Simulated assay, not measured.
Amino acid sequence: MVTYKNGVKVGPTGRPLKDFPVPAPLTSHGPARIISMSNQKGGVGKTTTSINLAAALAEYGRKVLAVDFDPQGALSAGLAIQTHDVPTIYDLMRGSVKDTKSAIQHSKVPNLDVIPANIDLSAAEVHLINEVAREQILAGVLRQVKNDYDVIFIDCQPSLGLLTVNALTAAHGVIIPLATEFFALRGVALLIETIDKVKERLNPAIELDAIIPTMYDPRTLHSQEVMERVVETFGDKVTDTVIGRTVKFPDASVAGVPITEFAPDHASAKAYRQLARELIERGVVA
């Protein structure tokens, strides 16, 4: 929803609307910037953002690898990726498969590849608990392929357990999709605290890249109030691009394609393309 403040167009964040240019094509690819898509609260649009942001960046010629790091396997399902009788991220984590490339599958979207996950990943925390340097196993897995991609997204499960710590230890940056709802906002402080601990003890290079407001409904005062609070708390870390609510997201997931392909002219598809352009403009992605 666009409104005016002092004669200037402003978006839902209350900031002036910006026009992010279409990025120039890349002349070479890699090494990848690894980004952990994290929020310990479920149902905030984390996997939806992982899928559609990855697809939008792929449209702009970026080579993208999406790592499904959630035992529910929603990212894999949302891109129609096979998850059984194939190597998965769990096999790579426990070392039964050594070659990371052997677990990579091509999605229907050009330039977008996936390492799948299934329910077996739920056993990883128990399996890894006695491993040496257990927090750094995922970093070793991704090191093999990081030169082949421009960006690697890790779609984390909604928890702050050992898998999420692995993702944060492997990452250069963190993106937090944040539903514009009060209870979603409450949990972010705990996630920020975890990121700070990982930065202090395991990965000094990690930084908070962006907070993406999702599931925004301009018709409700609640959404507007939470948005104001988010911008007040996190300032410029909050993206100008806001993702609204729509029934098109589950429809696209059932079809096994991102919304940018399922409904390319829909407002949400345009929003994810704008988000991709914004993150490139911010330097979060090459």
Rank of each mutant, 00 (worst) to 15 (best):
Thr3Asn: 14
Tyr4Arg: 14
Tyr4Leu: 15
Lys5His: 10
Lys5Thr: 04
Asn6Pro: 07
Asn6Phe: 11
Val8Cys: 05
Val10Gln: 15
Pro12Tyr: 15
Gly14Asn: 14
Pro16Lys: 13
Leu17Ser: 06
Val22Leu: 09
Ala24Asn: 12
Ala24His: 00
Ala24Phe: 00
Pro25Gly: 07
Leu26Pro: 03
Thr27Arg: 13
Ser28Arg: 13
Gly30Ala: 15
Ala32Phe: 05
Ile34Tyr: 07
Ser36Phe: 04
Ser36Thr: 10
Ser36Leu: 05
Ser38Pro: 00
Asn39Glu: 12
Gly42Pro: 01
Gly42Cys: 08
Gly42Ser: 12
Gly43Gln: 12
Thr49Phe: 00
Ser50Lys: 04
Leu53Tyr: 04
Ala58Gln: 15
Glu59Asp: 15
Gly61Trp: 00
Gly61Asp: 02
Val64Tyr: 07
Ala66Gly: 08
Ala66Asn: 05
Asp68Pro: 03
Asp68His: 04
Asp68Thr: 02
Phe69Tyr: 14
Pro71Tyr: 04
Leu75Gln: 09
Leu75Met: 13
Leu75Thr: 03
Gly78Asn: 12
Ile81Gln: 04
Gln82Ile: 07
Asp85Gln: 14
Asp85Val: 04
Thr88Pro: 08
Ile89Asp: 04
Leu92Tyr: 02
Met93Trp: 06
Met93Tyr: 01
Met93Leu: 15
Ser96Gly: 03
Val97Leu: 09
Lys101Val: 06
Lys101Gly: 01
Ser102Ala: 14
Val109Pro: 01
Val114Thr: 04
Leu121Trp: 07
Ala123Asp: 07
Val126Leu: 15
Val126Pro: 00
Glu131Cys: 06
Glu131Lys: 15
Arg134Ala: 11
Gln136Val: 00
Ala139Tyr: 02
Gly140Trp: 11
Val141Glu: 05
Leu142Trp: 03
Arg143Ile: 05
Lys146Arg: 13
Asp148Cys: 09
Asp150Ser: 04
Phe153Leu: 13
Ile154Arg: 06
Asp155Gly: 01
Cys156Asn: 13
Cys156Met: 10
Cys156His: 03
Gln157Ser: 13
Leu160Arg: 10
Leu162Ser: 08
Thr164Val: 15
Asn166Ile: 08
Ala167Lys: 11
Ala167Met: 06
Ala170Cys: 14
His172Ile: 05
His172Trp: 09
Leu178Asp: 08
Glu181Phe: 00
Phe183Arg: 09
Leu185Thr: 07
Arg186Pro: 02
Ala189Met: 12
Glu193His: 15
Ile195His: 02
Lys197Gln: 14
Leu202Cys: 04
Asn203Gly: 00
Pro204Phe: 05
Ile206Ala: 02
Glu207Lys: 11
Ala210Asp: 06
Ile212Asn: 08
Asp217Gln: 05
Arg219Thr: 11
Arg219Phe: 01
Arg219Asp: 04
Leu221Pro: 00
Ser223Gly: 13
Glu225Ile: 11
Met227Leu: 05
Met227Tyr: 00
Arg229Ser: 12
Glu232His: 10
Thr233Gly: 02
Thr233Leu: 14
Gly235Cys: 07
Asp236Ser: 03
Lys237Phe: 03
Val238Phe: 10
Ile243Met: 08
Gly244Leu: 07
Gly244Phe: 09
Phe249Leu: 15
Phe249Lys: 06
Pro250Gly: 13
Ala252Glu: 08
Val254Gly: 00
Val254Glu: 10
Ala255Thr: 11
Ile259Gly: 10
Ile259Trp: 10
Ile259Lys: 15
Phe262Asp: 12
Asp265Pro: 01
His266Lys: 05
Ala267Cys: 01
Ala267Gly: 06
Ser268Asn: 08
Ala269Lys: 08
Ala271Gly: 02
Tyr272Gln: 08
Glu281His: 04
Arg282Phe: 02
Val284Phe: 01
